[in-house]
Simulated assay, not measured.
Amino acid sequence: VTDLPVLPSGKLDRAALPPPRAGDRAAAFVPPRTPMEETLAGIWAELLGRERVGVNDDFFALGGHSLLVVRLIGRIDDEFGVELPLRRCFDATTVEEQALAVLEEGLTDADLLDLLEEER
């Protein structure tokens, strides 16, 4: 295990860290697979100032913060007509997880009854 570079103060010396390998990020990128994921990835990219966002990227790891979450909730409501609770945004931090959360939050009691009937 390699020791991390530290400053005389004992804090991490970020300037001395090697740059991230470009291949690692590119290999991990998974593009949106559904229209909802495409829309969410577009919203995220705009809010976070990113060129592209994959379905497994983490909102907070990409620079998101609580103020951006509030804007995200508004954009999701505008786009899908679903008001995602703040807590869900902190729990569902990837595009994939948020797409599922939007679907779940958007289900009405009538939708649930229809799904139960289909199961029979």
Rank of each mutant, 00 (worst) to 15 (best):
L68R: 07
I43S: 02
D3M: 08
A92C: 15
D111W: 01
I76V: 15
A110D: 05
A27K: 15
G74L: 08
D3V: 10
A27V: 14
V102Q: 00
G63R: 13
D111Q: 11
P31W: 07
A92E: 06
K11M: 07
L112R: 14
I43W: 00
E46N: 13
D91P: 06
E38H: 14
E117Q: 14
P85Y: 04
E96Q: 05
L48P: 00
L7A: 10
E51K: 12
R50M: 14
P85F: 02
E46D: 13
V53H: 00
D78C: 07
G81N: 01
D114F: 01
G23H: 05
T34I: 12
D13K: 06
L113R: 05
E104V: 13
I73Q: 02
D77M: 10
D109T: 11
D57K: 09
V69A: 14
R87H: 09
D58I: 06
D91Y: 03
E105K: 04
R88A: 12
S9L: 12
L103N: 04
T94D: 06
A26S: 15
R25P: 06
V70K: 00
H65F: 09
E79Q: 14
A99Y: 01
I76Y: 00
L68V: 13
E83G: 02
L48K: 10
V70E: 02
L116C: 10
P5R: 03
L4F: 03
D13F: 08
G54N: 11
V53P: 00
D24V: 15
L107R: 15
L107C: 05
A16G: 07
L116I: 15
R52A: 15
L84G: 03
V82Y: 04
A61Q: 15
F80C: 07
R33A: 07
R50D: 08
G54Y: 04
D91W: 06
T93Q: 15
A22N: 11
L86G: 03
L84R: 00
A28C: 14
G49W: 12
F60K: 09
L12C: 12
D111K: 03
R33M: 05
F59W: 08
